[in-house]
Design a protein around this nucleic acid. Sequence first.
DNA 1: TTGTATGCGTTATCAA
DNA 2: TTGATAACGCATACAA
Lengths: 338, 338
Amino acid sequence: MATINEVAELANVSVKTVSRVLNNYEHISEKTRKKVQEAMEALNYAPSSIARQMRTGDSLSIGMLYSDPSSGYQARLNHAVLKACSDARRYLAVEYFDETNSKWRQQVEAFLDRTKVTNMILVPPMCDASDLHHLLKERGVHFVLISPSSPLSGASSIYIDERAAAMEITKHLIDLGHKRIGHISGDEGHVATLLRRQGYQAAIERYTNQDVDEDLIASGRFKFKDALQCADRMLQSKNRPTAIFAANDEMASAVMMVANRLGLDVPKDLSVAGFDNTHISEVMWPALTTIAQPFEQIGIEAVRLISEGTTSDSSESITKVLPHTLLIRGSTGPAPKE
Amino acid sequence: MATINEVAELANVSVKTVSRVLNNYEHISEKTRKKVQEAMEALNYAPSSIARQMRTGDSLSIGMLYSDPSSGYQARLNHAVLKACSDARRYLAVEYFDETNSKWRQQVEAFLDRTKVTNMILVPPMCDASDLHHLLKERGVHFVLISPSSPLSGASSIYIDERAAAMEITKHLIDLGHKRIGHISGDEGHVATLLRRQGYQAAIERYTNQDVDEDLIASGRFKFKDALQCADRMLQSKNRPTAIFAANDEMASAVMMVANRLGLDVPKDLSVAGFDNTHISEVMWPALTTIAQPFEQIGIEAVRLISEGTTSDSSESITKVLPHTLLIRGSTGPAPKE
DNA sequence: TTGTATGCGTTATCAA
DNA sequence: TTGATAACGCATACAA
C-alpha cells in the first residue's frame, strides 16, 4: 500500500503539498493539484486513517455505554449502531456501564482514557444523567442523545414521537371494537412511560366517549415480573378488559403468559399489544402487535449527526424525529361479542 | 492524558522498559515491573492503540463476526466477550456478518483491512466454516474457536461438555419420575444438536430401562416457530410426554406457549426444560429450568487465550472445557400421577 | 536486565 | 503557492 511519500515523489512535490490536496486546502494551484491527484490514482493511494488519527488526536471511534445487557431494546440498538458505524467506516467502542455503581465517574473516565473517543452516543437511561453530561462536556466529548427526556443545549437528539405512537396503537384497539382497554405502563423514571401513557389516555378520550378508567392502568416498571402481577390482577377482576396495551414487548409477553394460563385465548378473548418490536415480539404465539422503533434509522442518524458535528463544528444542536410504524400481527383482533 | 514517556519518567526507567512491561516481556525484574505498574496506575495510563497500531501494523482489537443478531446465545456471548475485553484493556471490533451472502469473502477482507485486527474470536456457526479458517490463516490472523464442531490444529478451542449437560438435565427429569420425556432438537448442521441429543438418549437408556422412543424426538432447528409445530404434534398425540427437553431456551419457550394454550399446566401436567440460560428463560412463567452456559468464563478465557497466544507465539493449540450448571427453576416438577 | 535512538504516515509550524 | 522539518505515542534494532 502506497504512502504519502511515494505519491509526493512521483508527483515531484513535497509531502505537505500532497497533504494539502488530500485535505482540500484552498491555496493551491490547479496544476499541482492535478499532478498530485494523478499520482494518487497511479499508485492507488489511500491515506492511512491510523496515521491521521495519530497526528490529529481524535479517533474515528464512537463511544457508547449501555447499562442493561438483557434489554431487548438495547440489544437491537447495539446492533443497529454497530451496523451504521461499520457502513460509515467507523468503529464503535461499547462498554457495559453499571449506572448504580457509585464509582461511575471513574469508570467513564477510564473508558475515555482507554478508547480516546471524542464522540459518544448516549442511550436511555444514561442519556438523561446530567452528571454524565457535565463530565463529558468537561472532557470536550461531543455526544448525541437517543430518546432523552428533554432536549439538551449543545447536543443533538434523536426521538420518535412516543405519544403519537401510543395513541396509534391504542386507536388500533379501539377500531377493533374494544371498549375496555387496559394499560400496563413503564418505570416512572423514564419519560417514555409518561408519554406512552399520555398517548393511551388521549386515544381513549378522543376516540371513545368514555373517561379513562384509572383501574385499567397499572405500573409494570418495564419488567416482565411486575407485569405478570398487573396482568393477573387485571384479568381476574370482575369487569376485565378485552384488550391490554403494555408499554413494552416484554410486559406484553407477560400479559400473554397470564392470559394463556387463565384459559383466555389471544386474540379471541383478549387482544395484546406491545411497544418496541424487540426480538421477543416474534417469539410469541401469536406474534405480537407492536410499535416498531426505527432502530436502523436511529443508528444511521446518530452516526451521521456525529460525523457532521465533527466536521462542521457549528455546535448547533439538531433534533430529529424519526418515524415509527404500527406493526399489526396476530395478537390483536376484534373485540369479543358481549 | 498520560503517555508512555510520563510513565517512564515517574517510574525512573526508560520508555523501552515501560514498553516491555506493557507487552509482558520475559526478561525483566519483578521490582522494575512493579515500579512501572504502579506508575501506570498513578497516572491512569492507557496505551494509545493508535500509536501502537501505527508502529506495529496490528491493533489491540480483537475481531468477532456474528451472524444472528436476534439470537439470545449470541447476545449473551457478545456481552461477555465485550466485558472481558474491557477488563483486559482491549477493544472488540464486532461486525454483523451475513454468512449466506456469496460475497462473504470480500466482507471479511474488508473487515480485516478496516480494523487491522490480527486476532479473532470465532463463534457458532462461523467457527466451523473451513473456508473462513483458510482465509484467516492466509492473512496471518490468529483465532480462537468457541464451541466448534471439532478441534482445529493451529487454533485453540473453548467448549462446554454438551453431551454431559444434556444428560444431566434429562436425568433431572427422570429423577422427577417422568417416564415419557420428549426432545426437540436443533439444527442438524450444528454439532451441538447431535451432542445434546446423544446426551438425552444416553440418559434415557442408562437411567430408565426403556429404549429411546423415536416418536418422542423432533427437529425444531433451534427456531421458535419450528418448535411450535413440534410441540403441538407431541402434546396432541394420544400418548403425550409428561416432560419435554428442548435443545435451546427459545424452543422451550415455544413448548410452554403450546402447553398453556392446550390447557396444560406447567409444571403440574408438563415439565419443560431448555438449554443455554439466555434472557428468554427468565421471561417465562414459570421460569425455565435450563443448562447455564458459562458465558462470563467463556469470554474471559477467549481473551486470555488470545493474549497468551500473541505473546508466547508457541502456536500450540489449547482445548479448554468449561463447566456448565444445571439451573433448576419453576418449569420442571414431579411427574403427574397416572 | 536496561537504555538510546530511529521510524511508522500523517499534519502543523514556520520559513521561503 | 510551496517545502523542510518537527511532532504525535509507541516499539524495536542495537548498544551497554
